[in-house]
Design a protein around this nucleic acid. Structure first.
Lengths: 196, 196
DNA sequence: AATTTACACTAACAACTGTTAGTTTTTGTA
DNA sequence: TACAAAAACTAACAGTTGTTAGTGTAAATT
């Protein structure tokens, strides 16, 4: 058996996925070639296939890893006893922090999922639809309980999630504003807009 | 000279750009081939070059057409005498309607500009940065005048524009909600979140 | 009717695509 | 030190990429 670890990063496959995420984010999935990726990893293109099965497997790993983290978080929060506005704030903060800490992965899951092959594509979209529905239900419940102002839940969910996705633009920028200020201001904006 | 008009759409070049916009939105710029585009237009790939200079010219036309429309609108609104919250609402509504009426074009300008070649890329990004700064200035002024609550202008602009970009997801969906409801609810959410 | 112009076509180019087969080198274990 | 597994390498594949050159044709202008 040869070494399983490379650098301090984990398995070589993890290094490849990580590097792929960087490139997919910079150039897009389609515009990134396996030779680009190989060069960045420091290896010949054919050698990548000792660790992965295909280019699209890389995209799958990235998209579903992110999706699973969001779903797991939602499940944890749903089963808590906090007021609904508090729950929503926790969810929003989780999304923002994911966008801050796992920028490349989340970006790809947000913008490059289109290039997933079937049946992964349908699978991914179903998970996403279900996730958004569950968020919508939280808001609906908040309205029914008088904790949240009257608003179309679908639109609220769309607005919240899209706004947070936009943090990718902050990531690419010269960052005149700190991550903390960004988080606090965005949370305030999005939560205050829901209050009665 | 041969016919300049094709269908009722305008010049053949316009038909090509329009069709390119559809494909770029569906599959992304990189994943769309000139042969794909040619087939959709009903012509051989080489024939496209009687009307356009290159694939990237198509992207340029789309991105800058959209950018110019937004800039023109901003200029018109800036020079009005309305209260700042009213100005912002007008801008937000304009963005929403652009996303509703010119979905393919705006989508590409939002998400596919990365594939612009230099010097167009820098040019585009400069215009965008300047546009956002001007929006930020409006918010800053609104805060100074006590019309808008205290919030980091950069974050407010980012939140507003990103939220509106997310309408692309509504466009792809089964539309259980009408365009009017979408617009009204999103405006309410984004404007109320700015009120003191 | 003759000529010019716009625009379609076919064929081809060189470069690049993801991926496989087969071979050699490296590396951890016995 | 020998052995076996892991992972690198080279070479090649069949298909696709954007684009150009050269040619034919139909239509508008003279």
């Amino acid at each position: 058996m040869a070494k399983i670890k490379s650098k301090r990063n984990g398995t070589k496959k993890e290094v490849i996925v990580e590097t792929a995420a960087q490139l997919f984010r910079e150039k897009g999935f389609s515009a990134t070639s396996m030779r680009d990726l190989a060069e960045q990893v420091g290896v010949e293109a054919a050698s990548l296939y000792n660790h992965i099965q295909s280019k699209s497997e890389l995209l799958q790993e990235i998209c579903f890893k992110v999706a699973n983290e969001f779903i797991a978080n939602l499940e944890a929060i749903e089963s808590s006893q906090d007021p609904l506005l508090k729950k929503l704030e926790q969810i929003i903060r989780f999304h923002i922090r994911m966008m801050l800490d796992q920028y490349e992965f989340v970006y790809i899951s947000d913008y490059e999922w289109r290039h997933l092959p079937e049946p992964y594509l349908s699978n991914f979209l179903n998970q996403r639809r279900s996730y958004r529905r569950r968020l919508g239900t939280l808001i609906e419940l908040g309205i029914a309980r008088g904790e949240i102002k009257h608003i179309e839940p679908y639109v609220a969910v769309l607005t919240i999630l899209s706004a947070i996705s936009g943090i990718e633009s902050w990531q690419r920028s010269r960052k005149t504003i700190s991550a903390e200020v960004l988080e606090e201001n965005m949370v305030t904006y999005l939560i205050d807009g829901l209050k009665k």
